[in-house]
Each structure stands twice: as C-alpha cells, then as structure tokens.
Design a binder for these strands. Structure first.
Length: 223
DNA sequence: GCGACAG
DNA sequence: ATCTTGTCGC
C-alpha cells in the first residue's frame, strides 16, 4: 500500500550518501495541498543491541482514534552519524510502512525534515521516496539557531540556518522543552506546525509520534 | 585545532 | 538511541 516509487541502496559510504542528499533535496516540494487531513501516521524506531524495531501508528486526525498499527524488525547495518540518520533507520521504517492497509494523508516522523544541514532529514527523504506529505518533529536540534520561544503552549520561534528559515521551535506544552518542527515533503512549515500542535493532547509529543514511540520501546522492554 | 552533532 | 533510581518540582 505504501512503498517507495523510487529506490536506492542504503549502504552508501558517507561521501556518496551526502551527495545523494544534496541531489534529492532539490526535488522537495515545500507547499501543502488543500486536501482535508483524515489520517496521520506516526513513525518511530528503537534499537536494542543490533536489532532495530520500527513502529507505525495511524490515527484519525479529527479525534485521534487509532486506526491501525504495525511493527517491523531488522538488524541495524549502518552506524549513527549525525546528518545520516536516514541511512540507519529507513530500511526498517519502510518495512513497517509497507504493512499499512490504509493510506495516511500525512507521515509524522521522529526526527528532522528540512531542518537538516543538507535540507534532507529523515522526514523529507522518506516523504520524497514515498511521494507522501510528511513532517519532521524532533526532540532536539540538529542544525540552526533560534531564540527561546515563550513558555506558553502554542508559542514558537523560527529555526534559522545559513540565513534561511528551516523550521520552527514549538512549545507544545506550557513550561516544557519545545520540539523542533520542520516540513518534510509536500508540506509547508505552517501546516507542519499546525498539525503538530493539533495532534498534541497534553503531552510534549504529538499523539501519533507518542504512540509509535511507546510501541517501539515496549517491544524492546519485552526482549 | 576545537566544539557541535536528529536517533 | 541506550545504560538506569530516586528525586525535585508543580
């Protein structure tokens, strides 16, 4: 149901991976379509030893009811290198997404989208390969500078890198550390921020991402 | 040369 | 991400 239109290997040497990111980033579409949002999928990955575990949870945007959820496992074959996280997590994430029986309107990833040194974080890279609207919602900064947003829920400040706004630092809960939102693909920063705030229910992370995270880690605990 | 650095 | 208990604060 949800598989990449175009594929490429994930075991590229760093120099080739970086060149590919530069090339793919040119194809990003950073505007949203007018289609109503019905289903939002949250995706997260946990790693135990040498085994990666991905979880995807599809929720209805209107009431955040859980529509379906899936998991996938596979050995990790790529090291963690800041800026190349996609090459470590994409294989297992694609396995989990391939199991979906519904077609989510938006993919919400735990990580950066456009707010990346080469403008192609996990959310942008996979949104592009899958040709689906996507959002990056990270718990910490990878690149860019920002002013601390006000402490109230809903406040935000621009995340700038090299004189360009690459994302938004968003306070999803009053008095709690902000999250780093950025457009993935076929998405504007404004709608990305709107969807993140619109799917938060009293916690720092949006519900789809929070549930996917709970699923992937609860598995690790049971091993 | 010295820090910074999604998960 | 993961290793890991209690503890400070609202």
């Amino acid at each position: 149901m949800l598989a990449p239109l175009i594929g490429h290997r994930w075991d590229l040497p760093a120099s080739e991976a970086i060149a590919l990111q530069h090339q793919l980033a040119r194809q990003l579409v950073l505007v949203s379509s007018d289609v109503d949002i019905d289903l939002v999928a949250g995706i997260d990955v946990s790693i135990l030893g040498s085994l990666a575990h991905a979880a995807v949870v599809v929720m209805r945007y209107s009431d955040l009811a859980c529509i379906e959820q899936h998991t996938a496992q596979r050995p990790v074959a790529y090291p963690y290198v800041p800026g190349l996280l996609t090459f470590r997590e994409a294989p297992v994430v694609l396995d989990a997404l391939a199991r979906l029986t519904t077609f989510p309107d938006i993919l919400l990833f735990d990580g950066q989208g456009f707010a990346h040194p080469r403008r192609l974080g996990l959310a942008s890279h996979l949104g592009l390969l899958l040709d689906r609207p996507s959002i990056g919602c990270a718990k910490s900064r990878l690149c860019g500078t920002f002013d601390e947003p006000s402490p109230e829920r809903g406040s935000w400040s621009p995340l700038k890198d090299q004189d360009e706004v690459v994302g938004a630092v968003v306070r999803t809960r009053t008095g709690v550390r902000p999250v780093f939102v950025s457009a993935g693909h076929r998405m504007s920063l404004e709608q990305a921020t709107s969807v993140v705030l619109g799917t938060c229910r009293g916690f720092r992370l949006p519900e789809p991402a929070r549930h996917a995270h709970r699923m992937s880690t609860s598995w690790v605990f049971s091993q």
